[in-house]
Amino acid sequence: MEDFYRDYILDHYRNPRNFGHLENPTVSAEELNPLCGDVIRMELRVDGDGIVRDVRFSGKGCAISQASASMLTESAIGMPLEAVARLSKDVVLENVGIGISPTRMKCAMLGLRVLKTAAIGSLAAWPDEE
């Protein structure tokens, strides 16, 4: 677990990318991690071709949830909304690049769950439970 806290993770935690809000998001969602009370909000701007042009996330949480969400926004920009709706947990695991302990998997997957909820239009399953 200590290996998880690498420099690029801490960088995304302390300098989150695409953090904040969009003027008029096309879709958005907000969700709570029941384990710790952390909240993440995702706002997406989707153009007429169904491509995600911009993403902003907001909220407060641990390094794992914040860094995962920050990296995920970078992955999602430029993707078709349909593909965002079908994203699996692998995208998060590839982004963070190292193992996450089972007890912290929910933290890592919170951003993905919120992003997928926004894309699907209804509550997505926890990606680690699919």
Binding site: M1, E2, F4, Y5, R14, L35, C36, D38, G61, C62, A63, I64, Q66, S101, T103, R104, C107
Partner: peptide, 14 residues
């Protein structure tokens, strides 16, 4: 500091 309590607890666990 600015470390989330869950991160503190994870490191203490190691």
């Amino acid at each position: 500091g600015d470390v989330h309590a869950h991160d503190v607890a994870s490191i203490l666990d190691t």
